[in-house]
Lab assay of single mutants.
Amino acid sequence: SDFTIRIGDRTLHLKNVSEEILKILEELLRRGIDFEELRKIVEELIK
Rank of each mutant, 00 (worst) to 15 (best):
S1N: 14
S1F: 14
D2R: 00
D2V: 00
D2P: 00
D2F: 00
F3A: 09
T4P: 02
T4E: 12
T4M: 07
T4V: 14
I5W: 00
I5G: 00
I5F: 01
I5P: 00
R6G: 03
R6Y: 01
R6N: 13
R6W: 00
I7G: 00
I7D: 03
I7R: 00
G8A: 03
G8D: 03
G8R: 02
G8P: 00
D9A: 03
R10S: 13
R10K: 14
R10P: 00
T11A: 06
T11K: 05
T11Y: 04
T11Q: 09
L12C: 02
L12Y: 06
L12R: 00
L12S: 01
H13R: 06
H13G: 02
L14W: 02
L14M: 04
L14T: 01
L14A: 03
L14H: 00
K15Y: 10
K15I: 06
N16P: 01
N16F: 06
N16Y: 06
N16I: 05
V17N: 01
V17K: 01
V17T: 03
V17Q: 02
S18V: 04
S18E: 05
S18T: 14
S18Q: 06
E19H: 09
E19C: 05
E19F: 10
E19W: 07
E20S: 11
E20M: 05
E20P: 15
E20K: 11
I21M: 15
I21Q: 15
L22F: 10
L22M: 10
L22I: 15
K23D: 14
I24G: 08
I24S: 11
L25S: 02
L25E: 00
L25M: 04
L25Q: 00
E26S: 13
E26Y: 10
E27H: 08
E27N: 11
L28M: 13
L28I: 09
L28H: 13
L28P: 03
L29C: 05
L29D: 03
L29Y: 04
R30S: 15
R30F: 09
G32Q: 12
G32S: 11
G32M: 06
I33K: 05
I33G: 07
D34E: 11
D34A: 12
D34T: 14
D34N: 12
D34R: 07
F35P: 06
F35M: 08
F35T: 06
F35G: 05
F35H: 05
E36V: 08
E36T: 09
E36K: 04
E36H: 08
E37A: 14
E37W: 04
E37K: 09
E37V: 07
E37Y: 08
L38D: 02
L38A: 02
L38F: 13
R39A: 14
R39H: 12
R39Q: 11
K40P: 08
K40N: 13
I41M: 11
I41G: 04
I41A: 08
I41F: 09
I41Q: 12
I41E: 07
V42K: 00
E43R: 07
E43T: 09
E43M: 10
E44G: 12
E44R: 12
L45G: 05
L45V: 09
L45W: 11
L45I: 11
L45R: 05
L45S: 06
L45D: 04
L45F: 07
I46T: 12
K47V: 13
K47R: 07
K47F: 10
